[in-house]
Design a protein around this nucleic acid. Sequence first.
DNA 1: GCACTTATTATGAATGATTCATAATTACGG
DNA 2: CCGTAATTATGAATCATTCATAATAAGTGC
Lengths: 156, 156
Amino acid sequence: MSIDLETRIRDAGLRVTGQRLAVLRALGEAPHSDADTVHRLVQREFDGFSLQATYVVLGALTEAGLIRRIEPAGSPARYERRIGDNHHHVVCTRCGAVADVDCVHGAAPCLAPSSTGGFAITTAEVTFWGLCPDCQLDPMDYDSTNEHQEHDTERN
Amino acid sequence: MSIDLETRIRDAGLRVTGQRLAVLRALGEAPHSDADTVHRLVQREFDGFSLQATYVVLGALTEAGLIRRIEPAGSPARYERRIGDNHHHVVCTRCGAVADVDCVHGAAPCLAPSSTGGFAITTAEVTFWGLCPDCQLDPMDYDSTNEHQEHDTERN
DNA sequence: GCACTTATTATGAATGATTCATAATTACGG
DNA sequence: CCGTAATTATGAATCATTCATAATAAGTGC
């Protein structure tokens, strides 16, 4: 958080635009947001900001290494600003909420497979699955016909 | 492989149909296939077998616990018959090929996070990323404008 | 401060993967 | 062999995402 966002964007070789700043700010407030959420957050600031433009900005920032894209099974891609520290994620099996989990074994790659099948492995990605605090308590759990509802379980 | 497929389907509480048998057989031949691949394989046997029907069958088998569905980032969902042994996967970053990797630490959950953020964790899913044997050799690697081509790296 | 070049954004359409709705068919218990 | 519920067939719909193209704006040099 030391350097300001503008400098970071510039240092990544990108032009500084209000949209990019706003997207980074949105991801600072709401980590693990999907494109649609980022879009809605940034729209408060830029009225004509379309969802497609959101994808373009997210794509550029991801490619530049300023944000990271994760794709948990069953939910749209999510983006986060915490990068370069090889952390992992917990995903709620009921509502899809995502939280960070520090790396299990320190430096990357924090795991080594027993048999690589000839692959030259560069990364180990760990995703934990379980119930978030809200869904553990939620009485709606007993009604299996109910749609899963996304809770506000972004603690970050 | 001891019990025959028909018995397994029945024991899972499902009716035995030719389509289901064919899908299971297809996944025996070509593990980690996506819905489209399964569809094409089964079509050889059932001429009118549609892609949508493939999704229905794959869904039923998955829900019954007869097959497992994995969703590596960037590729469509893939299905496999190897279940219940908590193994993991290596995915080729270039061509998307998937191979099995035995569990790093034995019994599930083979990993424990350092901070759960209040989540009640039930599963740890590990995905390794790297280059498959074919893509390690492939000279097209040097031409970055080329599309990634899927190699036949299913060793199983 | 102004013009120029090129990166970036806006807009609308298109694609790929998957699901849904409904009608036709089939497995299997009685 | 019959009946019923489970399964499949078919076509349309949805969701997330990308593509194509035109309009706009950032940053560079003057």
